[in-house]
Design a protein around this nucleic acid. Structure first.
Lengths: 171, 171
DNA sequence: TATTGTTATACTCTATAACTATA
DNA sequence: TATAGTTATAGAGTATAACAATA
């Protein structure tokens, strides 16, 4: 079962490519989640910290819009981050209904640490490839991502799914 | 938000590579699930049909082992496939506890159709790349998959997850 | 009347455990 | 006593709906 990779799919020589993408991608996501675990963070937490770090002071509505996440889901995730002192909700004078989200000092440090973890993760994941090959792979993926209109830094797992099956296996 | 892809991540030029893999991979999986929907199949169904097609007559225990799926989960999926006449459980004389799984005529045709859908899916997903580039991408991914010891044709989404967080977002 | 954020509820998916029938 | 398959239960995770405060 180790090298039967040739005998699988249907027709064209790259027919398995889409499956390979989904397979390696899911593996990458799972491994990253494992590396995040010691930091007591789930992937969506990391995504939020990164987004807030990039757009300091944005509202929950704006953030949920950007990440394609339901506001009600965001609340729970933000609660956890605020409780840990990584992020704070500051009430704004302009509109007393909404909060401006800011990273704390600890939050900024956590973002740094996530960056380091991501780098280690990438290195372990792509150990089979040298630097030039990694750059090549990144370039190809970026072109797919752009053509498919994927938003930079937004994982589909964050998204509210259009009423139907969850963004499931295979591919 | 369309080309901020440069300003995200941490340090190295390919730091975003792992995220890109997870992002594109999840996108691929979601799009494939959509293409499967008209066939009234979920991705795990397709995975099962393919596996049984490759190893006609295997038992549920063997199949659940191969796909890394809990036997109890397999039951429900097989029920649906059998009900639709795509697959059958034949009792074997040797061991009356177990069943040998076989594709029906309709099941084999469905496998063909899944292959066609997969091909269309790949073509749409990788529209940004020409044939040579697709082959290049596939080769790079295959090397990662091999080095990371991923089993051919088995999506991590099938797997029983080692007691912890689900194979989640990011990467 | 519409919007921000929140709470409460329901639904889906999947893991765990308990059970039967064989062996 | 152990194994194949099944059923039943419970636990995550996430979408939907209802709500209070403000605009």
């Amino acid at each position: 079962m180790t090298s039967a990779r040739s005998s699988d799919p249907s027709s064209s020589p790259t027919a398995e490519l889409a499956f390979l993408l989904a397979q390696v991608g899911a593996h990458a996501a799972a491994r990253f989640a494992e590396r995040l675990a010691p930091l007591k963070l789930l992937p969506p937490h990391a995504g939020i910290l990164r987004a807030v770090g990039q757009s300091d002071g944005l509202s929950q509505a704006a953030l949920s819009e950007r990440l394609g996440m339901f506001p009600s889901r965001l609340v729970v995730l933000l609660d956890a981050l605020e409780e840990r002192g990584l992020l704070e909700r500051r009430s704004t004078p302009e509109d007393r209904r909404s909060y401006a989200l800011h990273l704390t000092r600890a939050g900024k440090e956590m973002v740094q640490q996530i960056g380091r973890v991501a780098e280690e993760h990438k290195e372990a994941l792509c150990a089979a490839l040298d630097g030039a090959e990694q750059a090549q792979l990144a370039a190809l993926l970026r072109r797919i991502a752009d053509e498919q209109a994927l938003t930079a830094g937004v994982h589909p797992g964050y998204r509210k799914l259009g009423r139907g099956r969850p963004a499931d296996p295979d591919g």
